[in-house]
């Protein structure tokens, strides 16, 4: 609520299935950053982590897991993520993502975000998903400019640990 106030809003109530004006998101993020006294990029990464690790959002994690049988397969599926999201909710428009493979285990992910710092959200998501697949991966922000943000991803060990269980058909109705 104090973050909403810092953002100059009267309410902190938002509905996931309703559409709000684009300019609200950065305002709220700045509000949170101000109240928590932490950089906005960290807040955004935490947001990404939260979206795929909180039990309330288990469906989101599962839907991402459908993208690939292993972490690398999953990384390649990110290209289709906006299309997949639109399949689920027709007016859910996610920023365009593009994976480039440079060498074995070396990737970069290019984001064209509508909200500055979106790549940090993606980074938070990818860190959790790497754990989910049991993969040891190093992720870092590798720059932004001209409306493009990029991440560099290095897969150190594909089967580093026992990943989280994923069974087809385990969740849905």
């Amino acid at each position: 609520m104090s973050a909403a106030r810092a953002a100059g809003l009267e309410t902190a109530d938002f509905e996931a299935m309703l559409t709000y004006e684009d300019e609200l998101t950065p305002r709220i993020l700045d509000g949170i950053a101000q109240v928590l006294e932490r950089p906005r990029s960290e807040i955004m990464e935490d947001l990404g982590t939260y979206l795929v690790s909180h039990p309330d959002f288990e469906p989101a994690r599962r839907l991402l897991r459908f993208g690939g049988v292993d972490f690398e397969d999953f990384l390649h599926s990110l290209d289709d993520l906006p299309d997949r999201a639109r399949l689920a909710v027709s007016d859910l428009i996610l920023p365009h993502l593009e994976l480039r493979k440079h060498a074995k285990g070396q990737f970069s992910l290019i984001c064209e975000p509508s909200i500055a710092g979106y790549s940090h959200v993606v980074m938070g998501v990818l860190r959790v998903m790497a754990d989910d697949y049991g993969t040891l991966a190093m992720l870092e922000s590798s720059g932004c400019g001209h409306g493009i943000e990029s991440l560099s991803i290095r897969v150190v060990e594909a089967s580093y640990a026992q990943g989280r269980d994923f069974r087809l058909g385990a969740q849905a109705g």
């Binding site: 469906p59 599962r62 459908f66 049988v69 689920a88 909710v89 087809l168 058909g169 969740q171 849905a172």
Partner: peptide, 30 residues
Amino acid sequence: VRDYHLTNADFAATDLAIEMLYLIEAKTAA
């Protein structure tokens, strides 16, 4: 897939089964 514990590998790469399961879950969540 539930009764026989099937995985992605049990379906041909061209089979739409996985996409079908994805859609069922996505639509259920939405």
